[in-house]
């Protein structure tokens, strides 16, 4: 290009932030995060505090960078060729991008649930037991069984599968499979659970069950959810962050974002005026 247009990064830009006096303290923090896929910049200077033991929702149109940012939090972008992350993401003050950090151990602390339920082609029991086994979290067989049962209970699945723990996980319904994946994430004792559109492949009833579960899980876990459904963000989260074209436009208490957003772009997006 002879005359390159100024990139959005060159414009001065400030995220609109509304403080929440009732929010829990933040242990997970991002500061000035930029992400590049090769030459293309996907995220611009994103800074946000994620309050612990509450649900934070990332919303925005496709390609706005919300999933990219979510994947930064447990370094899923590491595996993408040509992807470069700058800035700091810290958990309890520890930089997640520290070269000495064990990524496998990090992903046990920061678990993830994906858009499409992806159980291993193994039994229900093995799906949940796999993580604790490879991380050496169970002392013996009874201990492992306890972890599996309690994880399935926390994921609200135990009652439905207790008679067929050794049946294949892939034989469950979509909603059950998704809860199995949540149980699998819980089994390794994470502090943070990242969810990338966990309900987009589910019917309304299964969605409601997952949302109810998310509400219960926030007692013990810090949850970050990316969702295309704004109603879902409004229903499940305490904090909402709106992304647009790679920038964090506005963040604040969910109620404020959905009743009286301060930024025009947020308003236009949530009311269905821009795609």
């Amino acid at each position: 290009m002879a005359n390159p247009a100024p990139t959005p990064a060159m414009e001065s830009f400030q995220t609109v932030r509304t403080a929440d006096a009732n929010a829990n303290p933040a242990r997970l923090k991002a500061d000035g995060v930029n992400v590049f896929y090769g030459e293309k910049q996907a995220l611009f200077d994103v800074s946000i505090d994620i309050p612990e033991k509450s649900v934070s929702a990332f919303i925005g149109p496709s390609g706005c960078g919300k999933s990219t940012f979510l994947r930064c939090i447990n370094r899923m972008n590491d595996s993408i060729e040509g992807c470069r992350v700058t800035g700091d993401i810290t958990l309890d003050g520890e930089n997640l991008y520290d070269a000495r950090l064990d990524v496998v151990e990090l992903r046990a602390r920061i678990g993830m649930v994906f858009q499409k339920p992806n159980p291993f082609p193994k039994s229900i029991f093995e799906n949940v037991a796999y993580g604790p086994k490879i991380h050496g979290l169970a002392r013996d067989k009874t201990d492992l069984e306890e972890i599996v049962v309690s994880s399935l209970k926390k994921a609200g699945l135990f009652e439905e599968v207790k008679d067929r723990l050794h049946a294949p996980g892939t034989g469950l319904s979509g909603g059950q499979q998704q809860r199995l994946c949540i149980a699998r994430a819980i089994a390794v004792g994470p502090e943070v659970i990242l969810m990338d559109e966990p309900c987009s492949a589910l019917d309304p009833i299964a969605t409601a069950i997952i949302e109810e579960l998310i509400d219960e899980l926030r007692e013990n876990y810090t949850i970050v959810i990316v969702t295309h459904s704004m109603q879902q963000a409004a229903r499940v989260s305490q904090k909402t962050a709106f992304f647009h074209l790679g920038k964090l436009i506005e963040e604040g208490p969910t109620e404020g974002i959905f009743t009286n957003p301060r930024e025009k772009r947020t308003q236009d997006y949530i009311t269905g005026r821009i795609g």
Partner: peptide, 9 residues
């Protein structure tokens, strides 16, 4: 329509 923000108001 589940209106939000200014529409809800």
């Amino acid at each position: 329509r589940q209106p939000v923000a200014s529409d809800l108001r």
